[in-house]
């Protein structure tokens, strides 16, 4: 299953990913109309300040997802048809916030849906081939890849760095 990996040195903290996420989860899917929607669309990833650098914090769609185990109403489930991403059915969410309480990355938020407050969680953009945040990143800090691909990239980078240091 593909995951979104982060090259921290490339994150400039521009927050385009947050904007793109909100726009993707709006009714109109266009920035200039999405900003006028009520309720306002809600981002599901967070660019935060960590120790002097900007760090995008995203949902990992964990194998042993605590939010999935914690959900009281069965709103959060694993979508086997989409490689096992952990997603949410808003109509089943009762707004108990147990998922918020247990997500170690703090990437579950609250949003208005049809007048009720429900959980807002990354759904890996079911209507797109590549998640909106990844596409929006102007420096390609966010990388959408299989873990093996990513490991290969990381190894190549380390090797290149080491090679550069030799001699």
């Amino acid at each position: 299953m593909k995951h979104i990996f982060v090259r921290l040195d490339r994150c400039t903290g521009c927050r385009e990913c947050e904007l793109a996420c909100a726009v993707e989860h709006s009714a109109s899917k266009e920035l200039l109309t999405a900003i006028f929607e009520t309720p306002p669309p809600r981002k599901r990833l967070y660019v935060e300040s960590g120790d002097g650098r900007s760090v995008p914090i995203l949902c990992r769609h964990c194998d042993d997802a605590p939010c999935l185990a914690a959900c009281l109403s069965g709103a959060i489930y694993r979508d086997r048809a989409r490689e096992g991403v952990v997603v949410q059915r808003a109509d089943k969410c009762i707004g108990c916030w147990t998922c918020i309480m247990v997500c170690p990355y703090g990437v579950i938020g609250r949003r208005l849906d049809g007048g009720r407050w429900v959980a807002a969680k990354c759904d890996r953009c079911p209507d797109r081939a590549i998640p909106a945040c990844v596409e929006a990143c102007p420096t390609k800090a966010l990388v959408y890849a299989e873990p093996e691909e990513w490991a290969r990239m990381a190894r190549r980078t380390v090797a290149t760095t080491l090679a550069g240091q030799e001699g």
């Binding site: 904007l19 920035l31 999405a34 900003i35 929006a136």
Partner: peptide
Amino acid sequence: PQCGFGLTGLCCRMCLQGPCRIDPFG
């Protein structure tokens, strides 16, 4: 994609305490 903050006019670079942006989603 071009910068959403620029497109909405919400980027300010008038001083060295910036650049600032305002979140159009509030």
